[in-house]
Design a protein around this nucleic acid. Structure first.
Lengths: 216, 216
DNA sequence: CACTCTATCGAACAACGTTCTATATTCTCG
DNA sequence: CGAGAATATAGAACGTTGTTCGATAGAGTG
């Protein structure tokens, strides 16, 4: 059932997951679904944790010497799963009782942070910040293509170029930032953008660990 | 009209904003709203930008010597607005034509980053990462109180303590991280958590700027 | 005065989440 | 073996939602 739900979500987006569509896909009745879940919220929570099962499996292949590297790898696996599933961010780690895999993932991130030797509070904050960043940026980047980009194929470049042109037409005195980044924006890659921000945060985390190791 | 929409959202959450409820609040008819907006999506986009107007105003009061300090202040103002408005994150900066204030806010963050003297790509990535973090963590932290916490008042502490107890009951060998942070989690403050993660990212950004200034 | 533009209103429609009842299948145990 | 409970399925029905549509009234214009 969760496979069917995730399938509908992946193929046609969040609005495609309806009880009637899911029942038709499974060849059953609408009411039957309610035997397994008590609401659509719970269905989405379970679907989210279903995806997290695969994320967990893939992220457990990495075990390096550097905790920061492990964190980067673990975060990127989650990013890959959320990038084209904007709904996942909203239902990730909402209910710990019905979402054991999300909790395991949190634990896994936390164990890497633990190896940095910070205090409990810093450890808690760092692990939560990393996950919050991944979820947030993925939901931001992977938002639906606004209009007709579903029909046209190669439209993404044109869409970005069009937005960049609008920025370039603004007053450079008043909008220096948008002018500076217009070229970058037009040719940017979402994954690069994500990785850069992640590295910023991990650099800050490494710095914090070093400072503490030196006893500051 | 946007005041009424934001009012409904703030008072009773995202599900309270319906065309019928909004029409009743404004003393008008349901169909009239469609004269000003073409869909509920656009209504929420405009409502989001309406909130951003206030965010922009408050964040423009800060102008310090240190760009990083400015970034921290600017980010915290946005956090304050999104913290209790989970819907804002989903509709922030989706359509630049109907959301001028969001674009101005992006420009403002970007101008602070510009002062760090990075290249166009790093500037673009840094500004986007900061905003992505704020939106993501705020949506994560400010998610609705799951159950009955709306009736009871002081229930938040009990809820957190209950979750922490569940973590403490797990096997410490298998869940070292959750055991380490259980106490922190039970007494944590959302804003502290947000600030810590933001400082991690800003520390990393400062480090990147210094490295570039030294010509590495 | 005729006509177009602006603006408002609420009935009607299709789709959705959810509830309910009826029914079939399997399991339990005296 | 067989009656009743537990498990499981199916679909009609209900209330609510976003959206469409035609009717209608005033404002501005030639």
């Amino acid at each position: 059932m969760l496979d069917g739900a995730v399938g509908l979500l992946d193929e046609d987006g969040e609005s495609a997951l309806t009880f009637r569509a899911l029942a038709a896909r499974l060849g059953g009745g609408v009411g039957s679904i309610y035997w397994y879940v008590s609401s659509k919220d719970e269905l989405l929570e379970r679907a989210a944790d279903h995806v997290m099962d695969q994320v967990l499996f893939e992220s457990e292949r990495f075990h390096g010497d550097d905790p920061i590297d492990d964190l980067r790898q673990t975060a990127m696996v989650l990013y890959g799963a959320v990038e084209h599933r904007p709904w996942l961010g909203s239902y990730f780690m909402r209910n710990s009782s019905s979402q054991p895999n999300s909790l395991r993932y949190y634990e896994r991130v936390g164990q890497s942070v633990l190896r940095l030797g910070l205090g409990p509070r810093e450890t808690f904050h760092a692990a939560s910040a990393i996950i919050g960043y991944v979820i947030g940026i993925a939901a931001d980047l992977g938002q639906q293509p606004t209009e007709e980009m579903l029909r046209g194929e190669v439209k993404r470049d044109e869409y970005l170029e069009q937005a960049a042109d609008a920025w370039r037409a603004l007053d450079p005195e008043e909008w220096p930032f948008l002018h500076t980044i217009a070229d970058e924006f037009a040719t940017h890659d979402d994954t690069d953008q994500f990785t850069s921000g992640l590295d910023l945060m991990l650099d800050g985390l490494r710095l914090q660990a070093e400072r503490r190791a030196r006893g500051e």
